[in-house]
């Protein structure tokens, strides 16, 4: 999906499809198909309704986690505080519902605003101090999470209104969780943003080459803050989705300092073809990356290799994806030299 800014206007849907076929998307589709088939044949219950339901739920959550990281990978930076922001925002939703007695819609809106605000704080520190986002978000991860635990007294919110818990438990066609639908909606919105809006194109341009973008008159700093805010807002969505799966909002849902989200957050966009150096994203790739990762996780779980080894397997998948990506980049370079 490498589309330069210059021909962005000409790059409409047909070009997008062509790009998708050449990118990681084709490989992911094949991988998903092969592993689904293998797990369906060699495990019992992989294609059962209950497993498809739980798959669709975890794809929904981790897909949004991956998109949230992707939104900031655009800048060539990263967001280690994503998990902490997700948990903090979910806690804000719980607080708004239970302590403030707000309705569901205003509470969710407040959570989104909180996520965007925390993300914007990251972005503001990054652009004003010009420090690498790694060390900035390493620090804010600690600050946000610690602050949230201090303010909440580590007490979760478990009396969610029936409307929300009902949504979390809903099954469409008897086996699809609405959390997957949320991922699809978020995915379409981001696809539209990055491909068809000036703001999205400017984010990509600023991330691909900040200096050139600045010389071309783009407000690079403001765009980077927006990318971080977008990442925070999507983190809030993921935090709420994870709470819906748990049926409660608890501070420990993403592990210590929210660090349990880190592996899926990087693994999924990288699998999908998003570059860590910035300027290139693949929304479709990220969504498919989430499907691939969850199919693997669920299948390995059913093969009973032990839940701890799944973590090792996912690390190997990330390593494999990186090596494959490098090999392909090398081949592309060699082809370029020949022609």
């Amino acid at each position: 999906m490498a589309v330069t800014v210059a021909n962005a206007r000409r790059a409409r849907l047909p070009a997008a499809l062509g790009g998708a076929l050449r990118s990681n998307v084709a490989g992911l589709v094949i991988g998903i198909a092969v592993f689904t088939l293998a797990f369906a044949l060699y495990t019992s219950g992989f294609t059962s309704r209950i497993n498809i339901y739980s798959l669709s739920r975890s794809i929904g959550i981790n897909g949004v986690v991956g998109l949230a990281m992707m939104a900031v990978l655009v800048t060539g930076g990263l967001n280690l505080a994503l998990g902490a922001i997700g948990v903090c925002s979910a806690m804000v939703v719980g607080w708004a519902l239970q302590a403030l007695g707000l309705g569901v819609a205003p509470a969710l809106l407040l959570g989104l605003i909180a996520g965007a605000a925390l993300g914007a704080i990251n972005g503001l520190i990054v652009v004003t101090t010009r420090l690498h986002s790694f060390v900035v978000t390493l620090a804010t991860m600690s600050i946000f999470f610690g602050g949230m635990v201090l303010l909440s007294g580590a007490q979760g919110f478990n009396a969610l209104p029936p409307g929300l818990t009902g949504f979390g438990r809903m099954r469409l066609f008897g086996m699809i969780s609405p959390l997957l639908i949320v991922l699809l909606i978020v995915g379409f919105a981001l696809f539209y943003l990055y491909r068809f809006t000036a703001l999205g194109r400017e984010m990509l341009a600023a991330g691909a080459n900040p200096v050139a973008a600045k010389l071309a008159g783009l407000p690079v700093e403001r765009l980077f803050v927006l990318c971080h805010a977008l990442s925070g807002a999507l983190g809030a969505v993921a935090g709420v989705l994870a709470s819906l799966r748990n049926g409660a909002i608890v501070p420990s849902m993403a592990g210590p300092l929210g660090s349990d989200w880190l592996l899926p957050a990087f693994l999924i966009p990288v699998l999908g073809g998003t570059l860590l150096t910035g300027g290139e994203v693949s929304v479709l790739g990220t969504v498919l990356g989430a499907v691939f990762v969850e199919v693997m996780t669920s299948g390995l779980y059913m093969l009973q290799i032990g839940e701890f080894w799944i973590q090792t397997a996912l690390g190997l998948v990330l390593l494999g994806a990186i090596l494959l990506e490098r090999a392909r980049a090398g081949m592309a370079l060699a082809r370029g030299r020949q022609s």
Binding site: L263, F266, W309, T312, G315, L318, L319
Partner: peptide, 10 residues
């Protein structure tokens, strides 16, 4: 990050 989860999982 990849080796982190490989080592930790092991």
């Amino acid at each position: 990050l990849a080796t982190l989860s490989i080592f930790k999982g092991a």
